[in-house]
Design a protein around this nucleic acid. Structure first.
Lengths: 139, 139, 139, 139
DNA sequence: TTTT
DNA sequence: TTTT
């Protein structure tokens, strides 16, 4: 079992990319406020990297942006990759199963199990759309 | 909201350290099997760093070890620190609120809200006990 | 392990009562929309009974009301009681550990672990305040 | 959002039924121990009704039985029905998305998203197999 | 109406 | 017996 649930706000607009096969991938970082204050009396946040695949990725690009409040249900994933210097690096990120929009700005749920037709690039008010090839995943 | 729930097995015995004030901190990494197989047909795992504070940390050191199956409830935390070269590094880890022992090996729950008296070092069958000073947290 | 996380809206103002010892108890029902439509194409909701104890109960009474959107973290509880006819009845409810206010209306978190002083009855814009004795819990 | 995660043991063997269209439905009740003791110093349990649909339902019937330890991920559902006297009754139950087997007895995961072929009745060591018609769901 |  |  590997379940994570987060409520927070996007620090920037999501970035949307597409695999050569046309599958969307959205990434953004989520600011999640801690429930308590630190010694200095400030309420800190954790900045967590989110990855969304498929149609929900496109919904994210279309309906949410910087500052949007969302609830995310997903799993925690630890990936490894080699950087340019050939050193092994670790990335820890949350792979979202669903992204629920809590803001007035775009009140819809983007669910991974949704039908996955029309994977084509669409206009997007917020998300930046960039093509990428599968062997060069840039995150 | 920042909730994570994991079920997995320890890859090694937990390491137990103590702050100068006598508070225990246990760390270990948890192997969490993915629910599906990869392209090669293998079932991979995510290796996730866990931190436990206080009396439950000592319970972990005393009751679980390499291979123990546990259920963890906690929050995802992203910390930053400077390495020896003075570069900013990120660590992503799960701060456990409770660790439930699912194995015969030590069937008890270690809950963060437990009474936190007797924070002294105890003998431990599994956990490695190392003192450390608060300004030199080694993980 | 017994964890539940809900996001929904209050169907009515919370009801706040107090035990003889002065501990607050808030109850309300939460409408949680289902992620899919039924055969008739309508999106149904589950109406779930919530119980909150202590200072957070008073915060609920003070800061949220009918229609407020909240995120709840708690546990599922199945209680039994005897009705007036002497028959055993079951109640299933969610005992909240924390209630996060997602609405503009009162954007604060009400956490069970908060300090629990000043348990006195306060004025409340939304919550109905009713005294009750512990051997006559009316829900 | 409506997520629930439970770890507990079956109080009896699961009951497996089939809709006329051949879809399996397993039901059982799960004993989930509370993390704390009551005033009498006893550790109580919540007895929670679980419903599983499809292929995972059949896996439950085939691989787990009374006393098996499982981890369940699902959603809380409140259903209404009319009893024989024509009175409206409420049922609260957990609809499982996945059932993870934690016991030696049958260490496999039964996931709702699995392929749903061969929905035929099979022999089962534990589950009681009963046919039922869709307009007479007996739970 | 209950599990270990 | 219900919320937006």
């Amino acid at each position: 079992m590997n379940k994570i649930i987060l409520i927070g706000r996007l620090t920037k607009d999501p970035e949307l990319r597409f695999t050569p096969s046309g599958k969307g991938v959205a990434t953004f970082t989520l600011a999640v406020n801690r429930p308590f204050a630190n010694q200095q009396g400030e309420r800190e946040a954790d900045f967590i990297q989110i990855v969304v695949w498929g149609k929900p990725a496109e919904n994210c690009a279309n309906f949410i942006g910087k500052g949007s409040q969302v609830a995310i249900d997903g799993r925690l994933q630890v990936r490894t990759y080699d950087n340019k210097e050939g050193q092994k690096r670790w990335v820890t990120e949350v792979v979202a199963n669903s992204v629920e929009f809590l803001d007035s700005r775009g009140k819809r749920e983007s669910n991974r199990d949704n039908n996955e037709n029309n994977n084509n690039q669409e206009d997007s008010s917020f998300g930046t759309v960039i093509d990428f090839s599968e062997d060069d995943i840039p995150f």
